[in-house]
């Protein structure tokens, strides 16, 4: 507290001479800025550090140097040219899996959300309650059963067994669609039903109404669930770790996990380069669209 006052007084000297109330206000601000500084250091340091480490050609880091002496791209070079692991393949696998999951999830949740919002049918409330309950148990709780089930499926359905991407995609879609469908349904509820009723009166089918009228209005919520689904599918490593086996099939997150267990001390620089590259797609998607995600989250959360 005393520190904060010293800090604020010295930084706000000219202002305080005018009115004592303003001084108090700036003292508060100074304290707030101090806290902000500490928190920002806590938030930013790891990210800065990994970036700097990834440009550091030294095999073992000299502790405490935030800016490496001779920064270069050698870690990135080795990351992509290594004969021990196909990092580029992992990266593409991840992008492929996450993109297909996202498209499929959007398709499924939007149509289902429309039906739940606009049709009145028997079992509607029960269905929504079932979705709510199922959604609560994360897929990892059933990991042993998933492993066994996918193994059995693969005996008869090529491409649906262990070491293939399709079952992963289905598991991600199933896992994300529960909460997403409820968010989408709530959003469609907020669109006045007069809009689609007039379209229906004019002779449009439900499908046309959905495709040409409702779906375009849903853009913000589609972006929200799209980004959340993509981030979840891209970031998962447990289910992928259990279901995928051969090096060429792994996702980038499983690859990073293997790095951590196998090569942590030896190839530290390469690992940090891998971490930076692995984070890039999410950051690229997240930064321009974060408004949608935050709006969606707060709206969803505050409505309960």
């Amino acid at each position: 507290m005393r520190n904060a006052e010293v800090f604020s007084r010295s930084s706000t000297e000219p202002v305080t001479t005018r009115t004592p109330i303003r001084f108090e206000k700036w003292a508060q601000y100074g304290f707030a800025y101090l806290i902000a500084l500490v928190l920002i250091a806590f938030a930013v340091a790891p990210a800065l550090w990994v970036i700097s480490a990834s440009f550091n050609p030294a095999k073992s880091l000299v502790a405490g140097t935030l800016f490496p002496k001779n920064p270069d791209l050698s870690n990135y070079d080795q990351l992509f040219s290594s004969e021990f692991f196909p990092y580029a393949t992992w990266f593409l696998n991840s992008l492929k899996i996450a993109s297909i999951t996202t498209l499929l999830a959007i398709l499924i949740t939007c149509t289902a959300g429309y039906a739940l919002s606009r049709f009145r049918f028997q079992g509607r409330r029960t269905l929504m309650f079932a979705i709510l309950i199922l959604n609560i148990f994360p897929a990892i709780l059933a990991i042993v059963a998933l492993f066994s089930m996918i193994q059995q499926l693969g005996l008869y359905l090529p491409g649906m067994g262990l070491d293939s991407h399709a079952p992963l995609i289905f598991i991600y879609v199933a896992g994300s669609s529960g909460i997403n469908v409820l968010i989408v349904k709530a959003y469609i509820d907020s669109i006045p039903s007069e809009i689609d009723e007039s379209a229906l009166v004019d002779g449009a089918t439900h499908w046309q109404t959905f495709m040409y009228i409702i779906f375009p209005i849903m853009r913000p919520i589609v972006i929200t669930i799209g980004v959340l689904t993509f981030i979840a599918a891209y970031g998962d490593f447990i289910i992928a770790r259990v279901l995928l086996k051969s090096s060429d099939q792994l996702t980038v997150m499983v690859g990073m996990l293997l790095f951590q267990t196998d090569r942590f001390d030896r190839d530290f620089g390469i690992i940090t380069a891998g971490a930076v590259i692995a984070a890039i797609p999410i950051i690229l998607i997240y930064i321009p669209l974060q408004k949608y995600v935050i709006d969606g989250l707060t709206a969803g959360s505050i409505k309960g």
Partner: peptide, 8 residues
């Protein structure tokens, strides 16, 4: 910290 993948 938010957009950085958890594992990373």
């Amino acid at each position: 910290p938010w957009p950085i993948p958890v594992l990373v």
